[in-house]
Amino acid sequence: MHIIKTLLFIGLTGATIYLATGLALTLLSPLAEDDAPPATGLFNGLRSPDTPPPPLSLYPTRDGSALHYRAYPAEGGADRVLVLIHGSGSHGAYLAPLARAVAGAGLAHVYTPDLRGHGTAPARRGDVDYIGQLEDDLDDFLARLRLEHPNATLLLGGHSSGGGLVIRHAGGRPEIKADGYLLLAPYLHHKAPTHRADAGWARPNVPRLIGLSLLNRVGITAFNDRPVIRFNMPRTVRDGTETLTYSYRLLVSLHPRDDYAADLAALNAPTLVLVGKNDQTFQADAYAAVFQDAAPEAEVRLLPDVGHLDLVAAPAALTAVKTWLNRF
């Protein structure tokens, strides 16, 4: 009996320490403030295009809210639909150069949704209601497009963290499956070889992330609205529509799971991965090996003289995307 009591005491003590550690890291770790910003040139790709993007439209979601998207109808009609998901801190407007190039060539109808928590006037900027809500929203949007284009090939693409969401969606339980994937310098995972610790502009609160991860493992989600990352975007490129902090539940919802290789393996449709050789955010040279191991059927291409944000407008990227679309 004494041994049993001792074991129970040790177990309870361990659980208490575990919870106390998680709470301390969550509640006592301040989020980083702006410091010396990275070079403004990195963000040139986020500047408003010379020609304004199409007006925003709304689509309904399963929770009764409505989210924004932009539509680029293909000239002359098309039997393909391409959905492009934007990256961290911004919204779908900066994808206009790629969307216009594809739609203008008559290759696909292109749609660029603004993710929940992002855009011009979200209900709660930088937050969602629960982990996985972005996948549910994406399913709702894809279901709508299936109704509008019942016979079209449905292709799902994303840039940076948007590419991460595409990978996460494929690796989950998607209600609507894509017929192909276009990944533009996708975020994979902070433990992936593609991660770059010196990216500079994304400043995660690592202690808080660890604390919230510990709490979530034991079912405590009450603190998942806490901000865990700050995007250090130069003020000269801001226009008031940026999303400069993310809650834990938004950040987790946006990226592949810890077993990111399993999510990558779920890309069981034709997949094109484009990365600029001069990418300032991720390790460009590491993508080929990661995909070869986890998703060997994917085609990975590195584009010379192209960076992270200008990838969506680079002539070489536009040409590669058009060539890929012609295969469907």
Rank of each mutant, 00 (worst) to 15 (best):
L183R: 02
I176K: 11
L184E: 06
E175L: 15
I167G: 07
S160Q: 13
G158W: 10
R168P: 05
R168M: 10
A178P: 03
G157L: 00
H169A: 00
L145W: 01
L183N: 05
R146F: 00
T153D: 03
L145S: 00
K177V: 14
T153H: 13
R168L: 08
L183F: 08
A170P: 05
L155E: 02
K177M: 12
G158T: 14
E175W: 07
R173T: 15
G163E: 04
P150S: 06
R173A: 15
G157E: 09
R146A: 09
G164W: 11
V166Q: 04
H159R: 09
E175T: 14
P174Q: 05
A178L: 06
R173V: 15
L155I: 09
L156N: 08
G172Y: 12
G163N: 01
L156Q: 04
A178G: 00
L145N: 00
L184W: 10
G162Q: 03
G180M: 07
H159S: 14
G163C: 08
L183G: 10
G180L: 02
L147H: 13
L154F: 11
L165Y: 07
L182S: 05
S160Y: 11
H169N: 04
R146P: 01
E175G: 15
I167K: 06
H149C: 03
V166W: 06
L165Q: 08
P174D: 06
D179T: 01
G157Y: 01
A152Q: 02
R146K: 14
L154S: 04
L147A: 15
L155D: 03
A152F: 02
S161V: 15
L154M: 14
L182P: 04
I176L: 06
Y181I: 07
H149M: 06
G180E: 10
G172N: 11
R168Q: 14
G163A: 09
G171C: 10
I167D: 10
S161K: 12
P174E: 06
G157S: 11
G162F: 01
R146L: 12
A178C: 09
K177F: 02
S160E: 13
K177L: 10
T153Q: 14
E148G: 03
G162N: 00
G157P: 08
V166E: 03
D179Q: 05
H169M: 07
